[in-house]
Amino acid sequence: MKSIYTSSPFAHNNSSVQKVMLQVQLAAFPALLAHILLFGYGIIIQWFLAVATALLVEYVMLKLRDKPVLPNVTDFSALITVTGLVFCIPPESPWWVIVSGSAFALVFGKHLYGGLGYNPFNPAMLGYAFLLISFPAEMTQWTLPKEIAGYSLSFWESFNHILFGAVAHAPIDSFTGATPLSAVKTGIQEGVSAQQMLQAPYLETGWWNLTAWGWINLAFLAGGAWLIYTRTIRWQYPVGFLGALGLMAWIFHSINPDLYAPVSFHLLFGGTMLAAFFIITDPVSSSTTPLGRLIYAAGIGVLVYVIRNWGAFPDGIAFAVLLLNIAVPLIDRYTQPRVLGHNR
């Protein structure tokens, strides 16, 4: 088998897994910046907590698995996993949420399956699903944007709140609330029309008539465009996902605008753009054939819409992704492209 490494090609395009992962991390920066501007410093603290957890978990798991630590930690895949997770959780949630979530994602999502490349499920979404089911209350208390809450927490206030649960001068309810997705959902369930719900003040304010959520989604979109340009991710993922989600939203909104929110709402609220460019694009747990990627992404888009409207959770990205992860081997099998010189 040694001869395998001494035969041609003797050239390489200098790409590497590390570069791919760092590219993704870089592309997440616009969204991170928007997040800080709009929701305060909570996310930074959460991110550092997550990275510290990841380093520890990686070290322990690699030792237990009897694998070399340095080359495996420096593939930066854990960094991407926890970064994805950090964007999903409320910025002011207590420290044990992100720590347990990151640890669960890495241990059960990655290492127990044999490490990077062998995990059938998206580790970040596995961790997020774990948190959604285990701590539903904490997961819905999202920090309100500055414009709505009237003020924002300073770095130290966030720090104290996350680590010690203490806020000097205000109860948690005064600066956190339901996310727009769950607010609209609850409203519709209570008989308020979707359009009326969207007229609510806190969904209107923001720069250029875009809400804080819209801005974060746009930031993800910008990072995602960069990823497509650098060929770090494939166009099939966002096109399939956003296309399917948008189409579903358009169809149902056209049928009954009172019951179903418009396309723009579905595309610019919740974790839509995060999922489209950073979550479902995880190559390890998604389909590898070009057509398969499109089907996989579209399947997630449809499921997200279904869960958002008729499911028990306000946003269904985690469950949609995990469900489609299961279908990947099947999709791969039936979407083999035609090989040159074979019949059409």
Binding site: V20, P283, V284, T288, T289, P290
Partner: peptide, 13 residues
Amino acid sequence: QAPMACIRCGECA
């Protein structure tokens, strides 16, 4: 460079 695990990125395809 030591080979790492396949991440199914599809560059080869």
